[in-house]
């Protein structure tokens, strides 16, 4: 089984095919271009309305205009606000910046949450997305620490875990996700992943040409630690500034090694007992 695993975790590959869909639509995804985000949070609200997510007011956080804090069981789209000093316009170089970025589940090519789920509640859809099945999840919570992006979370009142489904129900009937649909400036672009990747590259080039040297793509690279993400981003600063891990790795990449170590340790334990037994006999 272990070699099977190695194979499955190797990039590049098509997650839907690998998950047993013989015929399936193109892999769908999000390209969130944070350079045109106006921080309106329509995406947060549209998502909540569509999915009837309970509100959970945190109160005033003082984190600029962000009062939802981060992704969680009741916030599947989250808009980050980062104020970067550099006083008043005019002076070249260090201009004040107010970065805004809408974060979401990455729908990883190699999704740790999905890999570790013991019930099959988390599954890969025919669109290549990663979805929790609320009728299956037993709330073991394993997926939560497994996600390297801190996306999926358990809703305590409910006992189950929740996260973005990339509007699986809507995709099924040919509609775009609620968040992308509402986004006033098209900061959230939904579509076929391959096409989005080309679009993103073009956009990055433009920004670089225009002198926005800090612009960078995040999650678009199929060679990264999670095999590239289904929802990727154009950021204007380092990922950690937005609360994103700079170089996440799907934990199950190391799982074969872990199993090997476990096998070694288990054998050692067996041996140790045997040794003690033999020792005791002698």
């Amino acid at each position: 089984m272990a070699f099977d695993l190695d194979l499955a975790l190797a990039a590049p590959y098509d997650p839907a095919s690998a998950s047993g869909y013989r015929e399936h639509p193109e892999r769908m995804g999000f390209f969130t271009d944070t350079s045109v985000c106006i921080g309106c949070k329509a995406c947060e609200v549209a998502c909540k309305e569509w999915n009837a997510i309970p509100d959970h007011p945190l109160g005033f956080t003082g984190m600029s205009y962000d009062n939802t804090g981060g992704l969680g069981a009741s916030t599947w789209r989250h808009v980050a606000f980062i104020e970067q000093p550099g006083r008043t316009a005019g002076a070249d170089g260090a201009e004040f910046r107010w970065l805004m970025a809408s974060d979401v589940c990455k729908h990883c090519t190699h999704a740790a949450c999905l890999d570790v789920c013991p019930t099959g509640s988390l599954f890969r859809t025919e669109f290549g997305t990663v979805v929790v099945q609320e009728d299956i999840c037993n709330g073991c919570g394993y997926c939560v620490p497994a996600c390297p992006y801190g996306v999926i979370a358990r809703r305590e009142e409910d006992g189950r875990v929740w996260k973005c489904t990339m509007c699986y129900d809507r995709l099924g009937v040919g509609q775009e996700p609620a968040c992308a649909k509402s986004c006033p400036t098209d900061s959230i672009q939904f579509g076929e992943l391959t096409e989005l990747r080309t679009r993103a590259e073009r956009r990055l080039e433009q920004l670089h040409e225009a002198g926005v040297g800090s612009a960078q793509l995040y999650g678009h690279d199929p060679g990264d630690g999670v095999g590239g993400t289904g929802a990727f981003f154009l950021l204007l600063d380092e990922p950690e500034v937005y609360g994103l891990p700079p170089d996440p790795v799907v934990t199950t990449r190391d799982l074969p090694a872990m199993w090997r170590q476990v096998a070694l340790a288990a054998t050692a334990l067996l041996a140790a007992v045997a040794v003690t037994a033999l020792g005791a006999r002698s």
């Binding site: 695993l5 037993n138 073991c140 919570g141 394993y142 006992g159 189950r160 199950t252």
Partner: peptide, 21 residues
């Protein structure tokens, strides 16, 4: 478990990728 009554859902699958499974 958040939903202890669903403990048996653990037996729906056999997942080498999931140590819990």
């Amino acid at each position: 478990l958040g939903r202890p009554a669903r403990f048996l859902n653990m037996l729906r699958v056999f997942k080498v990728t999931s140590p819990m499974s």
